[in-house]
Amino acid sequence: MKLVVSVNHTEEIRPCLENGADEVILAVHGHSFTALKKTAPGDLPDNERVGLLVNQLYFPSEMDSMHKLLDEIGNRSFSSVYFADPAVAAYVRNKSLCRKLIYRPDTLVTSSKDAGWWMNRGISGVTVSPLLTLEEIRKIVGHQKHLELIIHGYTLVSASRRKLVQAYLNRNVDETDGLSIREESRDSHMPVYETEEGTLVYSDQIQQSFAYVREFAESGVDRLYIEGVFMGTEELLDTVHLYRTILEKDHPETELDEYKNKYKHRNLGEGYYGEKTIL
């Protein structure tokens, strides 16, 4: 089992590893759709405990760029490569890089059968949708190994190829941080991030798994993922440290209370763990 965390800057790699992460994920500029802060391909560090987020959906004119990146990555020592486009799996199908692939299609894997189908392609793992109840997660994990669960962070709610805020304001959006929307009948804000790739909207709540992460680890989940989007370095390190403590210490209540007190201004919740979606 690995505790994995996505970071916003290469400077956060070493502190996260020192605070308890087993692996750190960097988003690659031009190849990561659902990340706010990205690293240029030329600046990727060689590190066996660094994985890459390459979850772009590629259009025809971008295929050469994808091939080039995958060729470069294949010659280096990264631990894992997250992908969402089946074309990535196609390109590395008979290459060693295939064994480092983790399928991360946001919401599309909600059953052990779908996860199992992807695992049978020779890849390393599959990220299960964060929209599942605890019961659903337990069932899937009971039937399929090599899964990853997103245990902490803002959940991506929607991803558009259109620049929605720019369209609405009818000007370029210079505000890269701090944008949010609030539905007119609700009080909570959903963070928004807009880039050249489009518009991302995140949940109003940070999903946390303090009460369940040990159960997940003991049930055979391969990877427990902390999403670092919208987190400053201090919060990121505190979060990694807390989960490491929960995983290794029988009674982490003190550390947990300290964390909750320090971050009481954050809207922490349990996401969909206790709420099943309906039709």
């Binding site: 709610v157 709420e275 309906i278």
Partner: peptide, 17 residues
């Protein structure tokens, strides 16, 4: 307006999947 299959605004706002 969002990529098909990757939008959960409805799930978030109404629990409707």
């Amino acid at each position: 307006v969002n990529y098909s299959g990757r939008c959960t605004l409805s799930n978030k706002m109404t629990l409707r999947d």
